[in-house]
Amino acid sequence: MKIKNYMKLTVPAKSVNESVIRSCTAAFAAQVDPTLEELSDLRSAVSEAVTNCIVHGYKDSEGEITVVLKLTADGWLYIKISDKGCGIEDIEQAMTPLFTTAPEGERAGLGFAVMEAFTDDLKVRSAVGKGTAVTMKKKLSGKYE
């Protein structure tokens, strides 16, 4: 399906940018007129991915997060959120609900579970020492006009 619109954002890995990125994502998605529920789910999924970059990828040190959004004519939104942080050694373990490497930071171990539940597709690619990229797809009920 042809990409009708796209957006690319790069921000420093600061926690204040969690709300910046999810607001930008919701604003981008709003052009196909999705439901409020879909926008809410999208914001949660994006927020989890960005938080992972900050807390795990960069472990609260400096770095950049890049978000790429692509929208098709029939309302599919492709979201890629990537960092150049430490990477994930065991992706399967990282994606297991309730597993977390940061309990002292009160992380619930539910980030990937939220991304999975609130989008239609989730893929995680990671290389230790190089970084992690999370790709999500979400069908929005509106159409591009």
Binding site: S19, S40, S47, E106, R107, A108, L110, G111
Partner: peptide, 13 residues
Amino acid sequence: SFMDSSGIGLILG
């Protein structure tokens, strides 16, 4: 108005 899994961490903590 918005919550992600950080809210769960807050509740459980």
